[in-house]
Design a protein around this nucleic acid. Sequence first.
DNA 1: AGGAGCC
DNA 2: CTGGCTCCT
Length: 589
Amino acid sequence: MDKSDEEMEEDDTEWKKSLVESVPLSPAAAAGPRLSKTPAHRVIVHFDLDCFYAQVEMIRNPALREVPLGIQQKYIIVTCNYVAREQGVTKLMSVTDAKEKCPQLVLVKGEDLTHYRDMSYKVTELLMSYCPLVERLGFDENFVDITEMVERRLVETLESKNFTSFKGHVYSHSSAAVEAHDHPSLALGSHIAAELREAIHSKLGLTGCAGIATSVGHQTAKRLQALGLVSVKDLQLFPLNDLVREFGDPSAQRLKNLANGVDDLPVTPTGPPQSLSDEDSFKKMSSTKDVMEKIQELLTNLVERMHKDGRQPHTFRLTIRRYSATNKWFSRESRQSPIPNHIGQKITSGGSDDAVVQLVPLAMKLFHKMVDSRATFHLTLINVCFSNLQAKGAAANRKGTPTTNSTASSQPTVGIDFREKRVMYTGTGADGTTERNFKVHLQLWDTAGQERFRSLTTAFFRDAMGFLLMFDLTNQQSFLNVRSWMSQLQANAYCDSPDIVLVGTKADLRDMKDVHTRQARNLADRYGIPYFETSAVTGVDVDHAVTTLLDLVMKRMEQSTYGGRVSEPNGSPVASNEVEEAPVRRRCC
DNA sequence: AGGAGCC
DNA sequence: CTGGCTCCT
Ligand SMILES: Nc1ncnc2c1ncn2[C@H]1C[C@H](O)[C@@H](COP(=O)(O)OP(=O)(O)OP(=O)(O)O)O1
């Protein structure tokens, strides 16, 4: 927004409302963990970094701080620093316009996003080290569900009775003043938000703004921004009801969405990316030779990035944009194909040059499916993309480990009594040539409506042979977040999916395309794992799912020498005896 | 495979 | 617009 706000950055005003120190908080508010079940009590922070690419370049070269700086991609200024903005340069302005407005504008090329992407993930990871529920939006925005941090601190502040204020600026369009004692969670959240923002500043040298609300995600935040309610580097407080009042959409349908959906849209932890791509645009490319060279160049980069990521891509996609006089030149065409395993493995395990050599012909095959190279053609963009990325040590695809020719068999289908917390099971497997017995502990762990794994040791995850995730979505009050559980499983268990998903969901939720149900389906679909959906989770359903899991685990043990988890979260292989503690990022402040 | 959305 | 990413159809 306007710059006067921005320059007041360190002026983090304490809005001491006329509150007495001992204003009693309602017992309900102090109840703690129970709060997280009620959407209205969630506290969500939104971080947006200032002129992100420009900031990164100014860190790389501090001299740029003093001059008007524009980040150039081809013929546009994609963003610029505030010195440049004062001179009238805007985001996504053409280079010619910008130079006209500001002849002294210093341009830095920003077509290679590597530095921005790296810094972007540093921010997300820093936030995750405080709180695991972080959702990314683009490279420069993060949503963090800090409900748990707030609850914990609510208890502490209650004990020390020093809770009196909001931090930052309070926005409300309602005539009633927003009082801290009416919104204790939000007020506390505003302090936490300020701390996180300070952490980003002190540890990474980046400035940005933080907004906070009980409601959700980007829709609302965007609307806030559009209406000018958010200014850069402001901290805002906002009661949900006011949001609903303010943003009541003229469209009745949208309004209904607001009433029904916005309230409990979960913050969905983003986790590692679903795809990696690299692209380049140009005025004109019209020879097969040029195309091949460009593809090779792009693939060299992409394969290197993929290698660092550690996961193995199983799908390759080539996208082109053709020139067309009719302003339809926006649309792209693409072809994709599976990546043969022997190529995919080279990417992960070091033979990167070799991988590129083999991927180029594959890419060219796809290219010829789209372009008849005997005729003339005119391309303006080429994109290469890896998707369907799989971690090697994953529980769901551990079949990859060396297989023995064991003849051992198992009969896992013993009666399972689910009133028991623990069930012992004995089956037979093989280790190399030697048969031996295994004991399988089946640990049933009830989330009890919580949103995070609690009180489970890292050894539990590390040693587990398989996971069954069960969700009961028939209770509309809870907002269990499938993706959230997934990402916690990934972080703790070093695997990229559970083995089976069981979901109980009501018919009307299914019809409403309930977000949670949809997430569960997508999850199972993405990882190609068994998925059971029932109208209500009964003992029979659970029994069936667990039996399937046990069968799977036993098969897995017959097939391979099991040496514990074999990969870190980022997928790079490590010896099993090196696996120690789970990464610190699961610690919540 | 394409479209639409977000930054 | 550029150079990414996401999810839905
Ligand atoms: N079409 C696009 N729209 C918006 N941003 C884009 C686009 N293409 C690339 N970007 C990049 C450039 C930006 O640095 C980055 C983040 O965008 P955004 O948050 O809108 O602005 P910004 O962080 O550059 O400035 P500020 O938030 O200070 O106004 O995304």
